[in-house]
Computed example of a mutant assay.
Amino acid sequence: MAFESNLVAAILAGVAAVVVLRSSWQRRKRSAILNVAGWSLGVLAIALGWQAAGAWGATIVTLWAMGAAYAVLSIAAISAPAAKVKASNRRAGMLPEQGEPLRLGRRSATFFIVGAGALLGAIAIAVATRWLASATGADAANATVLALFAAPLAYTLLAFFMLMTTSRRAQFGWIGASIASAVPAILMGSAL
């Protein structure tokens, strides 16, 4: 009975988090208090779900919160008034306007720097995660699972942040910082 009530409370907190965040974000000026309350409810929901049923409970809570977000955003999309300004024909800078240079070299360099750099950085973060987990007492299997979890998450975040930067220096800074995270593991000789 306690398991079910904890899981229901977690689900309700997750749905409430979505509703509170949506109410904050639909205002002209976002409310810092509502933002903090919404994110706090989300964290509480995950914690309660984890306490009730471990990873399975956290997953159930997350699915309910995503369903609530889908419903709330669907209602907002259906009820939104039509735009008064015609959308631009330009597709987010994918193609240059008439007469603009293609800048294929710069675009290709960005593709390779972000693709390969984020991959190297993600591998380094995974190595650092495994080393840190092992150093704090996790057994080999758990440390490896954490590293396998960290790699795609790190790759996604690194690629996003590298694509959002406006300079090559910042892109290489992200790569360097992520690779530097593996230096202690490599120096200790326990990278694998």
Score class of each variant (00 low, 15 high):
96 P>Y: 06
73 L>F: 10
112 F>S: 10
63 L>I: 13
65 A>H: 05
114 V>W: 06
69 A>S: 12
149 F>M: 08
120 L>R: 04
157 L>T: 07
95 L>H: 08
142 N>I: 05
88 S>M: 05
97 E>T: 09
149 F>D: 02
62 T>L: 13
104 L>M: 12
40 S>L: 15
34 L>R: 14
41 L>H: 08
50 W>T: 15
129 T>K: 02
154 A>G: 04
137 G>A: 03
111 F>H: 11
133 A>N: 00
71 A>M: 08
54 G>L: 04
43 V>R: 11
101 P>F: 08
36 V>Y: 12
74 S>T: 11
137 G>Q: 03
86 K>E: 15
36 V>F: 14
140 A>K: 02
148 L>Y: 02
63 L>E: 05
80 A>E: 06
123 I>P: 02
115 G>D: 06
79 S>E: 05
68 A>Q: 01
37 A>L: 15
69 A>Y: 07
36 V>H: 10
156 T>S: 12
48 L>S: 10
55 A>C: 01
121 G>N: 09
41 L>I: 11
117 G>E: 09
147 A>M: 00
71 A>E: 02
37 A>S: 15
87 A>M: 05
89 N>I: 09
64 W>S: 14
91 R>G: 02
61 V>G: 06
47 A>T: 13
99 G>L: 11
76 A>Q: 08
85 V>C: 01
159 A>L: 10
66 M>A: 14
156 T>Q: 06
111 F>D: 08
130 R>H: 03
61 V>T: 14
77 A>S: 11
94 M>V: 14
68 A>C: 05
141 A>Q: 07
39 W>D: 06
131 W>N: 04
149 F>R: 01
127 V>Q: 02
87 A>Q: 06
84 K>W: 04
35 N>R: 12
95 L>T: 13
127 V>A: 10
103 R>Y: 12
148 L>K: 04
79 S>W: 00
127 V>K: 01
83 A>F: 07
109 A>D: 11
46 I>T: 14
85 V>L: 11
43 V>K: 13
102 L>M: 11
87 A>P: 02
35 N>I: 12
136 T>L: 05
104 L>W: 11
93 G>D: 07
151 A>T: 03
148 L>D: 04
34 L>A: 15
34 L>H: 11
54 G>T: 04
69 A>N: 09
157 L>D: 01
93 G>P: 06
33 I>R: 14
48 L>M: 15
49 G>T: 04
107 R>H: 10
151 A>M: 13
158 L>R: 07
83 A>I: 02
128 A>N: 07
112 F>T: 14
131 W>Y: 15
